[in-house]
């Protein structure tokens, strides 16, 4: 079974975005930069803002945005 955790609480080096719960403008901005549901991301810097790597780029994301990005947690 899969569960979800928000990006700001995500621990680990890489994971997959399960869903995003953000205002539309934010979501579109993230998607245009390559952060969308199903995308695999690498965590480059924790904290606020945090830095993630996806779609060949590095994106700085404020903590409040990270709260709206849900990561998939695979249970072993």
């Amino acid at each position: 079974m899969n569960s979800e955790i928000t990006l700001n609480h995500f621990i680990g080096t890489s994971g997959e975005i399960a869903r995003m719960d953000l205002p539309e403008a934010c979501a579109i901005r993230l998607k245009s930069l390559g952060l969308f549901e199903g995308q695999k991301v690498q965590l480059s810097r924790a904290g606020n803002p945090m830095i993630v790597k996806a779609a060949g780029g590095k994106i700085a994301v404020a903590g409040d945005i990270a709260k709206g990005i849900y990561m998939r947690v695979a249970h072993s």
């Binding site: 869903r19 579109i28 998607k31 245009s32 390559g34 969308f36 549901e37 199903g38 995308q39 779609a55 060949g56």
Partner: peptide, 21 residues
């Protein structure tokens, strides 16, 4: 394709770009 984003042009576009790259 990315399942939940099948109709999302951004997901489509980025996955296409990634595959093409």
């Amino acid at each position: 394709s990315c399942g939940s984003c099948r109709v999302c042009p951004y997901a489509d576009g980025h996955q296409w770009a990634s595959a093409l790259a």
